[in-house]
């Protein structure tokens, strides 16, 4: 639902970085987000398209990578990556512990790189 504000923020960063490197034409951008960050890739893509239309950035490709959830068991420290839809509740595959695992990946939301000329 907040893909518009994310795309706006993303474009601000892109413009800054392009200025910094003297680039004028944007070719592609890579964004990484975690499964838990509630981003809908299609909505982000759409927001990006709408916001770049009729600007010098129009036509740039948005690459989106989704990171899985990975957790570390709070009891035996096993790292695991639950595949279930309700992944937050997956028991540890080693010891079966269900509560209080540490989230290692899944909350990210960042711009990884920009291809520009």
């Amino acid at each position: 639902m907040h893909e518009m504000s994310i795309a706006t923020s993303l474009l601000n960063i892109i413009r800054q970085e392009m200025d910094k490197h003297g680039a004028t034409k944007l070719i592609s951008v890579k964004v990484v987000f975690g499964k838990l960050s509630n981003i809908v890739a299609d909505s982000l893509d759409f927001a990006f398209e709408v916001l770049t239309k009729d600007t010098v950035l129009e036509g740039a490709k948005l690459e989106i990578e989704e990171l899985p959830l990975t957790m570390r068991c709070c009891k035996c420290e096993t790292e695991f990556s639950p595949e279930l839809a309700n992944a937050m509740f997956a028991p540890c595959p080693e010891c079966g512990e269900e509560f209080g695992h540490t989230l290692l990946t899944g909350k990210e939301l960042y711009l990884e790189n920009i291809q520009a000329e």
């Binding site: 994310i6 970085e17 711009l111 990884e112 790189n113 291809q115 520009a116």
Partner: peptide, 14 residues
């Protein structure tokens, strides 16, 4: 050219 960035997209907010 490739510009490696790795910047949090919500950094302005943060």
């Amino acid at each position: 050219m490739e510009i490696p960035v790795v910047r949090n997209i919500l950094e302005a907010n943060d």
